[in-house]
Structure formats: C-alpha cells, structure tokens
Simulated assay, not measured.
Amino acid sequence: MGVAIRVAAEDDRERVVQLLDDAFRDDPVSGWVFPDAAHRRDRHPRLMAVFADIVFAEGRVDITEDGAACALWLSVSADEGHADEDHADEGHADEDGPVQLREAVDPDNVRVELVGRLTAEIHPSGRAHKYLWMIAVAPERQGEGLGSALVRSVLDRCDQEGVPAYLEASNERSRALYERLGFGRTGRPLELPDGPRMWPMWREPRAGSATGA
C-alpha cells in the first residue's frame, strides 16, 4: 500500500510543530543551537513553530494522512540564494531574517542567528529549485518509509517539471537517505563553529522524466 499524502492546512499547524519538535530536538544541529537540554526543551518548540509558520506562509507543507510525518518545501527562484558582492545591497533585507529569528525564539542565543546566516551563505543561487527545508517523522514511526514517500512525491513533480532540488542534511542518517533518493553532495560541508557538520546536497531532475521545463 502507498502512503497517503496531502497538503497541510492551517489547522494542521500544531501537529506539524509537534512533529518537528519531536524529530529534531535531539538532532546534532539542535543540540548545538541549544546545548543545555532543559533550555532546549523550552525554546526548541518556538524555533520549530517559526519555521513552520514561514513555510505555511511562503511554501508548501506536505503531511501524511495519518499525521505521522511532514515535509516543508520552499520554491526558490533563480535570483535567490546567497548574495554575492555585486548584490550585497539587494540581499540586505534577507539578512535581517536571522536577526528576527533570534529575537523571536531566544534573544540572547547568537547561535540561533548564526545557523540561519551560515546556511543562507551556502544556499546555491542562479537556478530555480525546490528547497526541502525540513522533514520530520514521528519517532515511533521512523523506519517505515514515510520520509522517503514524502520526499519522492515532490521529486516526482521535480522530474516532470525539470526542476532541481536542494537541501542541507544535518546528520549521517538523513544524508544516507537523501543519497538513496538521488541527491549528491555539492560544495563543502558546513562546519558549525565548535559543532557538527551540515551537508549541502543537490539533485538534478531525472533524465527522461521532465516534460520540457
């Protein structure tokens, strides 16, 4: 049987935030952003809520029909991504985002802002693509193929439309999953200061599947 997937509605927001919190609270990057476990339990849900709200407003949230997994996607235009020196002034407004994120989530925690700045700096520009920001599976349902099904549902559309996809893997397990789905590492890994690595990964649309984009 296939996995039933639908686009999440606003009344799914609480469930989406809970999935993200449960799935990422012990992720290496979350542990780096919030080293103290008690503080992480308090502030991590706030961070996940902000992420969810951004994608509900600007992108697409897919969720399995049973509410066990979700994926957050953004459509990135060709002129978005990291700003180069020739476009530094144009990127100024986007640079305010990490500051606003820190102020909303944990004002005294510079790592909340820093992780946003560093991932923005490595985000590729020059080609329109789909950006898989986050994918979360309820801990008790991991290993059932729900995450793969969620990603494949969008990658199938990418192939049909001739659109590439991009993500940053935050741990070895997720990196291996994405490699199986056709993503390859692009550029150098992001080394968080005194922290874990993140791997930028890119997937070209599958040859023969595009419909002439």
Rank of each mutant, 00 (worst) to 15 (best):
F34R: 02
V112S: 09
E10N: 10
E95T: 11
E113I: 10
V7G: 01
V110Q: 11
D89R: 15
G162W: 03
E85M: 08
R25Y: 00
G208I: 08
C158G: 01
V154A: 11
A104Q: 10
P200V: 09
A213N: 06
L114W: 07
L101V: 15
P164Y: 08
A9M: 13
H39V: 15
G126S: 07
E121C: 08
S30T: 10
A104L: 07
P28T: 00
R127T: 14
D11M: 10
L167G: 08
G187F: 05
D156P: 01
A37N: 00
G81I: 07
D108P: 01
H123N: 07
S30L: 12
E14A: 14
E90C: 03
G187A: 07
L114P: 00
H92R: 15
A69P: 03
V33G: 03
A9G: 15
M48A: 11
N109K: 12
A128E: 12
F24G: 04
V61S: 10
E58A: 13
R43N: 01
R6S: 06
A149W: 03
A104Y: 00
Y131G: 04
V137D: 02
R46K: 14
R43V: 07
F51G: 07
L181Y: 04
R185Y: 00
W133P: 00
W199Y: 12
E121A: 15
D26W: 05
Q142W: 07
E10F: 06
A49F: 03
V3E: 13
A69Q: 09
I135H: 03
V151N: 03
R60M: 13
A138F: 09
V76I: 15
E140Y: 06
V151E: 07
F24L: 15
P139A: 05
I135V: 13
V99T: 12
F183G: 04
L72K: 03
W199V: 04
Q18C: 01
A23Q: 04
R41Y: 00
A207T: 13
A38Y: 00
G184T: 10
